[in-house]
């Protein structure tokens, strides 16, 4: 068994930082170990990404069984074909892409049989806990308007937002998932960001206005 220690740099960003102790391997090291047949590396990859994948799956459907079946298939395949898989640049985006490729056809199959899943808003944008703290009524109302506007963006645009700003994938990687060119992904995201900037600037201005008005 291999024992490696890598210094963990807190600011460089790995969301698992809290559950890690000092002999944590990087994704690249885990991948190499997995290809060499290390079951411990396999388990660590599972532990590191099980919630990321489940969370992503839940954005498409509430059918937990289906999500878990696809995850099972994904990981089983990962172990079985580990030697043939070649090198992987970014493990997280690799897993997200492979998972999505399994999940989408399964969902289409399942939804042809049952009609239950239709009501579900996919990739719904919600209040972040930080924003919910602000309980100024007027602001809440404005936030709600903003949310509605965000949630009426096309589903694909919201998924891009999710992958870019929630999971931290690059435009290049998202382009691979959507099978489109990176520039289009960039434009897709930019449209949403511009909308947000505009809306937020306006609401800041309104608040300022109210503030000065009241204090006069």
């Amino acid at each position: 068994m291999k024992m490696k220690t890598t210094l963990f740099n807190n600011i460089s960003g790995d969301e698992n930082s809290d559950q890690l102790n000092n002999n944590i391997l990087s994704d690249e090291e885990l991948w190499t170990d997995l290809q060499g047949g290390s079951s411990i590396a396999f388990h660590q990859i599972y532990q590191r990404y099980v919630q990321v994948l489940f969370n992503y799956g839940k954005k498409f459907t509430n059918q937990r069984e289906l999500i878990e079946d696809c995850m099972q298939e994904l990981f089983t395949g990962l172990w079985k074909y580990r030697e043939k898989l070649g090198s992987v640049k970014n493990l997280k985006s690799y897993l997200l892409i492979s998972f999505r490729r399994k999940l989408i056809p399964e969902l289409q199959k399942a939804n042809r049989l049952t009609e239950i899943n239709k009501k579900n808003v996919r990739f719904e944008i919600v209040f972040s806990p930080e924003r919910t703290k602000i309980n100024e009524e007027r602001q809440l109302e404005q936030n709600q308007n903003l949310l509605n506007q965000l949630n009426s963006l096309p589903e694909r645009q919201r998924e891009a937002l999710y992958l870019r700003y929630y999971e931290g994938l690059s435009c290049q990687e998202i382009a691979e998932i959507f099978e489109m060119n990176p520039q289009s992904v960039y434009n897709l995201l930019n449209r949403a960001i511009n909308l947000l900037k505009k809306r937020l600037l306006i609401s800041i201005l309104i608040l300022f206005y109210i503030f000065f008005h009241l204090s006069e």
Partner: peptide
């Protein structure tokens, strides 16, 4: 802007992770 782009966090409980 970044805080406006927030999604629900939906995790598996520990037992489900183990079962899977």
């Amino acid at each position: 802007v970044l805080l406006s782009i927030s999604f629900k966090e939906e995790n598996m409980v520990e037992r489900e992770v183990d079962v899977l």
